[in-house]
Design a protein around this nucleic acid. Structure first.
Lengths: 223, 223
DNA sequence: TATTAACTAGACTGGACAGTCCAGTTTGAT
DNA sequence: ATCAAACTGGACTGTCCAGTCTAGTTAATA
């Protein structure tokens, strides 16, 4: 059977990718070393090179797999049934979903690495941007267009507004985490509070006046 | 004269620091190499080591100098005479100032490097955060407290509001530049438009109702 | 059971590079 | 002019590491 060998091959491949992910995330491209990847994968160095032509190829495959995986995760949680619920609820759900998926040590470290390696591998930065922020922004833009048609959102450029919304939600936490490390990653309750506050501000600027209801300045305590 | 020798020493030192800045920014800590720093500084390798004990020490001095320098630049431009002008003007000026200072290839590359080296040198991240975002946020927080006392801003936590403001202004451009490279740095006119839009949204949520005047949804064309 | 593709252990090559050493030269102060 | 500190250039050491080579072992298939 062709599949027997293929299974064995795939097992090795996956062990290597998992080990490489750990090592690269921890040490960066230059800091990582192929011997330690082989060791961590419990595989001979030769096998590593049988699967991946070079350190660079392995690195690229690891990173692309991670960015792709993250992109697939976002959006699985919030199905876009816009029609039946108010803008505020939809935006809040999207904000919480995005924050929950992205604000994890693993993805924050991926982001740090990609940013740090931008000089050597510019395509990784672009790929992360297009699989991450851009996807989210497009999704929100579609939703805003919908709510605009329903008269719940003021007339504006949906893409521009969605961009604003995206960074109101993600800006503070990601930037803090980039520079301050994983300890700056917000807790679940902080994350909820932040999401509500961002939605409140966004709607006070973009909701239809009738519907504007900026709500209390102090967000609902989410502790 | 003590100063003669000291001048010679300082000239070398400065040449080395300038060269090291270039090389480190371009290649990162591990990617940089001391021979090329010496060469670029037009100085012998020995002299480099006479001034800085090791690559690591040199690296730290370069980065600390850059972060400190940037911190000093911000705020030189906008003197904080709050009393006499409306919130909107003050916030707009601050936003444009910050964007102008921070959104340069050199500082964006510094930020990328520091983020990338966070694992090896966590203190650099903290230092950049405290010399950059935190300083700006504190400044805006002070101003907001002032305007709150004047009844132009709603009652709220000034620090929290200032944090929101900061990332509404800086979030989108920095994040894009981090991942997409210097070509994503906004032009002067984009930067102005973005600043106005951020202030508009912020004020529609935080200005006193009487004074709220969210203004038109479409920001004043800043082209 | 025989065959063969996948794998192992570990020695090895070649190049890069941090940091040192040394013997001589320049420069600025006195 | 003299002297010491700063500097030069380049050879050198030791280490690390990507990638290769070899000879032998394991395991899935037919």
């Amino acid at each position: 059977m062709v599949n027997g060998a293929s299974t064995r091959v795939r097992r090795s491949r996956e062990k290597i990718l998992a080990a490489a992910e750990q090592v690269f995330l921890h040490a960066g491209f230059l800091g990582a070393n192929m011997d330690s990847i082989a060791e961590k994968a419990a595989v001979s160095k030769q096998t590593v090179y049988a699967h991946f032509q070079s350190k660079e190829v392995l690195f690229l495959e690891v990173i692309e797999a991670m960015t792709g995986g993250a992109a697939r995760t976002i959006g699985e949680n919030v199905e876009d049934r816009l029609d039946d619920r108010p803008v505020r609820d939809y935006l809040t759900a999207v904000a919480i979903d995005q924050l929950s998926v992205v604000m994890t040590p693993r993805l924050m470290q991926l982001r740090r690495m990609v940013i740090g390696e931008t000089g050597r591998f510019p395509e990784l930065g672009r790929s992360l941007y297009e699989n991450g922020p851009l996807v989210s922004i497009r999704r929100v833009a579609r939703a805003l267009a919908h709510y605009m048609a329903l008269g719940q959102i003021r007339d504006c450029d949906p893409f521009g507004a969605a961009t604003q919304f995206n960074w109101m939600v993600m800006g503070a936490p990601t930037n803090a985490a980039m520079l301050l490390g994983d300890s700056a990653i917000p807790s679940r309750s902080e994350l909820h509070a932040h999401a509500h506050e961002a939605v409140r501000i966004f709607l006070s600027a973009y909701a239809m006046p009738a519907d504007a209801g900026a709500g209390p300045v102090v967000p609902p305590a989410a502790t």
